[in-house]
């Protein structure tokens, strides 16, 4: 009873494990720090596979695209990195958080 429902089909870390065990290259992105208003708290995960499939979130959908792109590099190189995102700067066409907060995201390969 009970326990099986705690890790649902949408469980990000469960999915990452199953992807890797199926032989796919996988990276895990984790919100490490937040400042001001940020949509997802520290510890939130986004799992990415080598073809760009992803599950979970590190923001309200604002920066996932950029994180997925970086994750593909991390899967290829094996070198973890920290990405920082601040307020969206429309004139510079940079991705950012429209809520006005800042976040840092750790992107690492699942080995």
């Amino acid at each position: 009873m009970g326990n099986a429902s705690d890790l649902t089909d949408r469980d990000v870390l469960g999915i990452a494990e199953s992807w890797r065990k199926a032989g796919r290259g996988v990276a895990i992105a984790t919100v490490m720090e937040t400042w001001g208003s940020a949509p997802r708290p520290a510890g939130s995960h986004l799992a990415i596979d080598e073809t760009g499939h992803f599950e979970g979130s590190v923001s309200g959908g604002c920066v996932e695209g950029a994180v997925v792109e970086e994750a593909l590099d991390v899967i290829a190189s094996g070198k973890a990195r920290v990405m920082e995102f601040g307020v969206a700067d429309e004139t510079a066409w940079r991705v950012g958080l429209s809520c006005g907060g800042r976040i840092s995201v750790l992107v690492e390969r699942l080995d």
Partner: peptide, 26 residues
Amino acid sequence: MDLALLTELNEARLARQATIRVTDPN
């Protein structure tokens, strides 16, 4: 992240055991 560590973490979560992963980001 190490796959064996992730497997252990997922097992602990399934068993409702509170767990912390300590990482050196460097």
